[in-house]
Computed example of a mutant assay.
Amino acid sequence: MTHKILFVEDDAELAGLMQGFLARHDLEVVIEPRGDTAHAALEREKPDLLLLDIMLPGKDGLTLCREIRPEFAGPIVILTSLDSDINQILGLELGANDYVLKTTPPAVLAARLRAQLRQHDHRAGTPEPDSSQLLVFGQLRIDARSREVQLGGERITLSTTDFDLLWQLASHAGEVQDRDTLLRVMRGLSYDGMDRSIDIAVSRLRKKLGDDPTAPSRIKTVRNKGYLFSPAGW
């Protein structure tokens, strides 16, 4: 099955090389060279995945990620030369599913893109959840049918990745979930001992769900093991 990727990148040589390489992996790449025309390209091409550079003419990739995330259900991957923890954290906070450096070998990038697409296809192909896929813990309500989260009657806005992470934790309430399991749920990848995206995502969930970051009682850290969703903390 061929998937379509919209690659927003102003380096024509790099974009062309990537287009040719990914085509050999059944990934059709459409190139858009400007950030300020990316919305129109998204509407026109209807891609399965959005691949974004950060430094773009017209509008930067982080701004695009923030603006596009609420309206685009597919994976968003940032591909950049900016090797910075701050940029990585910001990109993931703004709704990106992955943050990849341009120095990453093309074969590894292709594997990560395909992993994101498999995760998305799995979610999209999952049959309509039945009523058993409604989780309620005190004032917290998680509805897999509508992918909505409410806390104290107030709707909490979560990205697709963050919802999947919360659902994995909450559907195994009272059980420790290790980072490898959670990373596979979020990104389809194994934990390498260095990836911080799970910790960043859990921190983001805690903030949105009103959990005390200094002494969390709702999503607890279990040292050297992973995270535990407390059913009694809501």
Rank of each mutant, 00 (worst) to 15 (best):
I86C: 00
G210D: 08
K102R: 15
R114M: 14
T103D: 00
D192N: 14
R184P: 03
D192L: 09
R223G: 01
I86T: 11
H25A: 12
H120V: 02
G152E: 14
M55H: 08
S197C: 13
A201F: 06
H25T: 14
D130W: 09
P216E: 01
S84F: 04
M186E: 04
D53Q: 05
S132M: 10
S84A: 01
E45D: 13
L50V: 15
R218C: 01
R118P: 00
T161K: 05
V77E: 02
L51A: 10
A23M: 02
Q88N: 04
L158D: 09
P33R: 03
L113Q: 08
H3M: 03
L82K: 03
P231D: 04
Q19M: 04
R118Q: 08
G226C: 06
T157A: 15
R206C: 06
N224H: 09
R147P: 02
A23G: 09
K207E: 03
S146G: 11
L51V: 15
E148R: 15
L17F: 12
G226P: 11
Q19R: 15
D11A: 10
S84K: 02
I156D: 08
A23D: 11
L209D: 01
L27A: 10
I156S: 10
L109P: 15
V77D: 00
R66V: 11
L90F: 00
A144Y: 01
V202Y: 00
L165V: 13
R123S: 02
K102V: 14
L113E: 06
S217F: 00
D11T: 09
T104M: 05
S81R: 01
D164F: 04
I31C: 10
I86W: 04
S197A: 13
D211E: 07
G74H: 08
S132L: 10
I78F: 11
E32H: 04
K59Y: 07
S159V: 09
L14W: 15
L17C: 12
K220L: 12
G61W: 05
A232I: 00
Y191S: 03
L49F: 10
I86A: 11
D195L: 06
Q88P: 00
L166W: 14
A40L: 15
L183S: 06
Q168Y: 05
R206P: 09
I5P: 09
Q168T: 07
D121V: 04
A41K: 04
T221F: 05
L51K: 07
D192M: 07
N97S: 12
L169R: 02
E128R: 10
L52E: 12
L64Y: 13
T214G: 02
P127F: 08
G125W: 07
D192C: 01
H39P: 01
M55D: 14
L151D: 12
R155Q: 15
R69L: 06
T80R: 02
L27I: 10
T37Y: 02
R147C: 09
D178C: 03
G91V: 04
L134V: 15
